[in-house]
Simulated assay, not measured.
Amino acid sequence: MLSRSAERLYWLGRYLERTENTARLLSVHMNLMFDLPMSVEISWRNLLTIFGAGERFFQLYETPDEHNTMRFLLADTNYRGSLFSSLNFARENIRTSRDLMPDEAWQQVNEMYLLIREKSDSTANRRGRVILLNDIMRGCQRFTGFLSGAMSQDDAYRFIQLGRNIERADMTTRILDIGSTLLAEDRSDKMREYENTLWMNVLKSLSALLMYRKHRRLRINSGDVLDYLMKDANFPRSVGHCIDEVETCIRYFPQSEELFENISTVKKLLKTTDFYKITPKNLHELLDNIQVKLDEMHQQIAATWFLAVN
């Protein structure tokens, strides 16, 4: 297939995954903020940290309160990582790739784009925001389910999967970086009191709570949550599973040697890390290291299979 087409499909996968993850994370964080007492050290600023968007936010807004943070992450067209921007980029990539997938796929993405464009003003009130986020999450899931059941599992599909799993692994590491705060030795007594609730919301943000309960059969605690979301080979949003999916996809493509080396490095990091004994500092360094490796994978994918732009 044409390198230009492969690049569009890859970014379609990334942007739609980013859209769904953003919607899920905003929804869970809202519930967390409203349920916890104000004395717990979790704030709207934590969302900006997860998205790595603090610097850009303060260029546009002064105070990281609920209204500004939600406006920025949901509908701000001046921030390329907002939910609306991600969906807009996804729409543009699928619009120019309509000959490679079923028509219904384009219709689904276009409907989500029109929905958020029409209802962006509703982000100012909580009820409207919750409804919009739920609609977006369902739309992304319908798109993913439709492709898995109605699109040939060929190179076009694999490039979408490749983008989706790199983006998913990156977001999982960003969410788990909250663990650096939750495990800190200097955390308050109130934080310690609500620690299990906070880890439960980490699981919820990745739709992992039920599967964690089913397969671990344990009380929620930091070691088991980290081990499950980093290593579990069967849970689709664990870092380990995403890396396995990336490896499966690139086996079908030529000139993948450097990518396999990076994949082996990440797998070795996951295998040799004891998440039951890891310190907050080491956890933060590990997650940063994996994010760097994911970015290197992206750069290798772009250099190997996408058209170079001078």
Score class of each variant (00 low, 15 high):
39 S>E: 15
155 D>P: 01
187 R>T: 11
292 V>Q: 13
87 L>Y: 03
242 C>W: 04
22 T>N: 04
179 G>D: 05
245 E>N: 06
284 H>P: 01
248 T>S: 13
17 E>D: 05
72 F>H: 03
171 M>C: 03
166 I>A: 08
76 D>V: 09
168 R>I: 10
18 R>C: 02
88 N>V: 03
270 L>I: 12
121 D>Q: 11
47 L>I: 07
122 S>Q: 09
238 S>D: 07
277 K>R: 15
125 N>F: 10
63 T>V: 15
234 N>Y: 13
251 R>H: 12
275 F>L: 04
169 A>M: 06
69 T>Q: 08
5 S>Y: 11
39 S>A: 14
64 P>I: 01
246 V>D: 02
173 T>N: 03
200 M>K: 14
280 P>Q: 10
113 Y>R: 10
220 I>R: 03
184 A>T: 06
12 L>G: 01
253 F>Y: 12
12 L>W: 07
79 Y>P: 06
33 M>T: 07
192 R>T: 11
196 N>F: 00
294 L>I: 09
65 D>Y: 08
32 L>T: 15
238 S>G: 07
289 N>H: 13
273 T>V: 12
89 F>R: 09
212 Y>W: 05
251 R>T: 11
185 E>S: 13
189 D>I: 06
124 A>M: 09
93 N>H: 06
169 A>N: 10
291 Q>R: 14
203 L>K: 09
57 F>G: 04
282 N>K: 04
237 R>C: 01
15 Y>P: 06
24 R>N: 11
232 D>S: 09
196 N>K: 12
180 S>H: 11
299 Q>H: 13
16 L>S: 01
234 N>Q: 14
121 D>F: 13
204 K>M: 09
244 D>C: 05
34 F>G: 00
197 T>K: 09
118 E>K: 14
30 M>N: 13
164 R>S: 05
249 C>S: 14
256 S>L: 00
300 Q>W: 00
185 E>C: 00
21 N>P: 00
266 V>I: 15
44 W>F: 10
3 S>I: 06
235 F>G: 07
260 F>G: 03
294 L>D: 00
287 L>T: 08
18 R>D: 05
221 N>E: 15
192 R>S: 12
63 T>W: 02
273 T>M: 10
149 G>S: 15
112 M>F: 07
289 N>D: 14
39 S>V: 14
117 R>F: 01
55 E>P: 00
261 E>Y: 10
95 R>I: 02
175 I>W: 00
96 T>C: 05
253 F>Q: 10
163 G>C: 05
271 K>H: 12
118 E>D: 14
19 T>Q: 03
242 C>H: 09
148 S>T: 09
71 R>T: 15
241 H>Q: 10
